[in-house]
């Protein structure tokens, strides 16, 4: 019986269980305009990759716990000392030293606002967000970078104040566990599985 591929790590090695690929026979591609002569073949493939978050794992794990983690360069000798990175950067872009992981949930709840946005009506294959997807880019006080995410409730506007929400029930452990709603949104209105 088929089973989705599952993975855990032991002794820093992947341990895998289940099916990581599914066999589907290829089919001929024929030319309807020329006597159904052979033009090519289909190459079906269904594979499951094993992807490491490495030093960013704490960011994705924390989303499911209702926390927005960032990093900060604390290297006294670095010209970027004190810079908060969101998106999370494991190493400082200037000195390449290991950044300090910080919790910026409060800062995000206090100061997040929309820098720019778009409304996506046609997504690519494998997108699991409902359309239209409201991409927003979020700026925070004291943070020089601008995070990309999505708005779950309401219509975005540049300058709109928003607060983060987190998929704390059945998290996916991806960036989709973080979303945003306008300030003042009631918890009862949040999408299923999300909380403040």
């Amino acid at each position: 019986m088929s089973m989705f591929g599952q993975v855990y790590v032991k002794n820093n090695q992947y341990k895998i269980k289940g099916n990581f690929h599914h066999m589907t026979p290829n089919q001929p591609i024929r030319n309807a305009d020329d006597g159904w002569k052979l033009m090519g073949v289909t190459n079906p493939r269904d594979m499951t990759y094993m992807h490491s978050y490495g030093g960013e794992a704490i960011f994705f794990e924390s989303l499911g716990k209702g926390k927005l983690m960032a990093t900060r360069c604390d290297n006294r000798k670095c010209d970027m000392k004190g810079t908060i990175y969101q998106p999370f950067r494991i190493h400082c872009m200037s000195c390449l030293g290991k950044n300090t992981v910080i919790d910026m949930t409060k800062l995000a709840k206090k100061s997040a606002k929309i820098h720019t946005f778009m409304v996506c009506e046609r997504s690519g294959a494998f997108s699991i967000l409902d359309k239209p997807i409201k991409f927003i880019n979020i700026e925070f006080d004291g943070v020089p970078t601008i995070l990309m995410s999505y708005l779950s409730i309401g219509d975005p506007k540049i300058g709109m104040k928003v607060i983060p929400i987190f998929r704390t029930t059945n998290p996916t452990y991806t960036i989709l566990d973080l979303s945003w709603v306008p300030v003042g949104t009631k918890e009862t209105n949040l999408p299923e599985g999300f909380s403040f």
Partner: peptide, 12 residues
């Protein structure tokens, strides 16, 4: 990890 899951569309 940070962008592609948001719609999988570069136009965005």
């Amino acid at each position: 990890d940070w962008e592609s899951p948001l719609g999988h569309v570069y136009t965005g």
